[in-house]
Design a protein around this nucleic acid. Structure first.
Lengths: 353, 353
DNA sequence: TTGTACGCGTTATCAT
DNA sequence: ATGATAACGCGTACAA
């Protein structure tokens, strides 16, 4: 009954040393209770555990890590935490992390290069076990530097020319193809591709896939028009709607394929406000199949990407790279699928569904 | 030119010791270059910096922290990373964190108590400088334990009976009042409150505020009906729509106030699909003013909460608690405001706007 | 201006 | 079964 201390007052939290003193055992024994409890006699163990709870003892991860040389955490540097797509990807990573008993920290670069670099530094300084990232720019020296320093790294939802790390992405070219094939199936012979910014690699890939399918259907290039914009947002979708409405009736497409769902939802809103009917006046296909696509005023046909699987696979790959000495880099490409809803389905077709 | 080493092969990354050897200086000099560069001669400093970059040296945060006793990071345990409201709050925190030169890690509890506890543990083990949290349950022993152990803690977007930590929230009662006052202004005398789960404290507060305003307007309690559901989601909103439509025409309210925007958007979708007009057949007010509210098929009137300011203030409070010995706990309550849009504004009113 | 020795909390090894 | 001690990488006081 003599060893008890209440040194919380000092501010510095209790260490194994304090626990040892409180329990009247040596420091090594406390360590054994923590790491190899089977080596410690029942009674002793209980005494130590009691002391730990009395003192509010919490292991110091820094000290463990300094000793062990590696940490028990993963970090995901995400491009945009407010985009549902990426939070769903993150949710997939959490599944794999939990399974491997690892902690996952989310870092939001907000598409800003300097923030991305800052988080990359912080994670490396913490000696995290692995870094997942959807980078602002997939071919950057900073990513190269991370792998050179030996931190397992996986690039998510982006392709890269770099082969020194794993990548996990979705086949955007196929996604574009699926969208157009569906519209062609529905009888459309004049379609607009609402692109957003063509500077984004994925947008270009989706467009390429769309063109492939268009040609395969034997339709003329001139009947697949491309409308570009400055961002992948709903407001850009609305202004794309203005531009479509401005076209002379003869040249106006009967369908639009949008590079993502936000564009598609903006477009939809614009048409409905203008008194047009979807899909009768214009059919719309989005991309990503975010949750809101299904609950839009007219439920949206969209290209679904396996967001969660994307995250899970990516996390599994970093973990493998960290654990498995035989690890070899993989470039995983997932297959998107089309989810057909009212925004493209006429009455006849929906009877089939 | 003799000291250079390439011991990256070993896997263990370069330490100050390696840098010192490579630069041909002592370990203390390297430390000075890092922490008090002004003490080091220009030429020496450059040599050391060169060595650091040659070796890809990265400071070991664990070692620093072990020495310093405190870390340079903050953690936010968020209730639901896929809810735009919380990601906006997080964005606000990032502003304050960046300003204080701190790193912010996001942790997603996904409304699961066990995950929340896991992250709380992890953050404490890392000895983070402070913890921000929107808890599953604001009055839990786990939160109490965190503050007892001396980690600065701020509860975000929740009230708590506990006074041992700061809280930052929004006046939900006032929000409810604003919504109803607006509807009464528009001439409505029969309104539905679409609640979702009444078990959530905030939903109850909003309802209370609504009732206050209703009575103040001299309207009978019976004309403000309450429709409950199991979640704050779009699909619950749709089924609330079904129930409203099922009411006999005489008892059917002319307006609905929804406990959040997702409910409101679901309700809106249901009515539009059924061929009803908003606001002519039914006016709708949402809550949160998420970005999508403005770009819905009928732009949604909503109660805006200062999401970002909420986050910034919360982060400032943890930082203060960590830095300032004079810190006293605050319970900050922000004021919501109404954003009137087409879903409640008839033609006459919009002329005024 | 530069070099040296010590301690932070934990863990593994060795000795008892 | 338990106790003593050296290391992990860094920062700091102090000595040179």
């Amino acid at each position: 009954m003599t060893g008890k201390r209440q040194q919380e007052v000092v501010g510095r939290s209790a260490s194994v040393k304090d626990v040892a003193a409180a329990a009247g055992v040596s420091l090594g024994t406390v360590s054994n209770v923590l790491n190899r409890p089977y080596l410690v006699r029942e009674a002793t163990r209980r005494r130590v555990e009691q002391a730990m709870s009395d003192l509010g003892f919490i292991r110091n991860e820094s000290a463990r890590q300094l000793r062990a040389g590696r940490s028990r955490t993963l970090g995901y540097v995400m491009l945009d935490a407010t985009n549902p797509f990426f939070t769903d990807v993150a949710a997939g990573m959490e599944i794999a992390a939990e399974r491997a008993d690892l902690t996952l920290y989310l870092c939001n670069s907000d598409s800003r290069k300097n923030r991305e670099v800052m988080y990359l530094d912080a994670l490396q300084q913490q000696r995290v076990q692995g870094i997942l990232i959807t980078p602002v720019e997939p071919d950057s020296p900073q990513l190269e530097a991370v792998v050179e320093r030996g931190t397992p790294l996986v690039v998510v939802d982006r392709h890269s020319r770099d082969t020194d790390f794993c990548t996990v992405a979705v086949d955007d070219r196929l996604g574009g193809r699926l969208a157009i094939e569906h519209l062609v199936d529905q009888g459309h012979t004049s379609v607009a591709f609402v692109a957003g910014p063509m500077s984004i690699g994925q947008v270009r890939d989706r467009y390429e896939g769309a063109k492939d399918a268009w040609r395969d259907a034997g339709l003329p290039d001139s009947a697949l028009i491309c409308i570009t914009g400055s961002a992948l947002t709903a407001s850009e979708g609305r202004s794309a709607g203005e531009r479509l409405s401005g076209l002379p009736r003869k040249r106006r497409p009967t369908a639009a394929f949008c590079a993502n769902d936000l564009l598609a939802l903006g477009l939809l809103q614009n048409f409905i406000t203008a008194g047009r009917r979807v899909p009768e006046d214009i059919a719309i296909v989005g991309y990503d199949d975010i949750d809101f696509a299904a609950s839009a005023a007219v439920p949206l046909t969209s290209i679904r990407q396996p967001r969660q699987e994307l995250g899970t696979k990516a996390a599994e790959l970093v973990i493998d790279e960290a654990d498995n000495p035989e690890h070899t880099h993989e470039h995983v490409v997932f297959i998107p699928e089309i989810v057909a809803r009212a925004s493209t389905l006429g009455l006849r077709s929906s009877l089939r569904a």
